[in-house]
Nucleic acid binder design. Sequence first.
DNA 1: CTTCTCATATAGACGCTCTAAAGATATAGC
DNA 2: GCTATATCTTTAGAGCGTCTATATGAGAAG
Lengths: 110, 110
Amino acid sequence: MATEKFELLQGTLDLLILTALQHDAMHGFGLSQRIHVMSGEVFLVEMGSLYPALCRLEAKGWIKGEWSVSAANRKARFYSLTSGGRRQLMEETARWEKLSSTINLMLKAI
Amino acid sequence: MATEKFELLQGTLDLLILTALQHDAMHGFGLSQRIHVMSGEVFLVEMGSLYPALCRLEAKGWIKGEWSVSAANRKARFYSLTSGGRRQLMEETARWEKLSSTINLMLKAI
DNA sequence: CTTCTCATATAGACGCTCTAAAGATATAGC
DNA sequence: GCTATATCTTTAGAGCGTCTATATGAGAAG
């Protein structure tokens, strides 16, 4: 899902979430906005995509969520990376680099 | 599908197929091998993934298939790019470049 | 005549993302 | 006080692309 019909490549949302959580804990709503901004408004992750992903990542032990109060004074669930999540981020980054560089190679092949 | 657990990113198989067909017509079986070789053995597209994709692409008018005889003297369906397929290849390439460069940007953000 | 390789095809399951809708609560405006 | 708006979470259902697994057939090789 995205601005201007740029749908995400399936399998990259986890990577984006882990990346966006790399430095501070965030709640889902803010995460969506951060991804939008970080991507130069290319990606627009809707809630219906984001929340299931957050649950998935939490179930796998890569992030953990805690209820707290947002800057706007509302209850919100703040997610942060676990140590396993950091490891996962490195692995997914490596995987991404391998896959994308391979595709780039093929595109340039004569 | 892949050597060493490198599964494809969903949505990139079409791009790989169109790219591999860019210069000559091929049958599915050979296409699978070509993708394996072109990718430096990173991608291994199994038949169960490839054939449905070929049908899809043909249904969309991006490739067309014709029965002929393979180098090994067997009946095989040779696929080639249509003009619409060439256009589609350009579009998907552009899309890939936009998406992948955006992700790379995010990964490098501090 | 049996086995191997080449080649196509299809069924069924799985996982991720999307669209869509519903609900709850604080703040702002009137 | 009342209502509207913005913030925030949640879930259901569908769709699509890929994967695993299997069936099928024909020429080549021995």
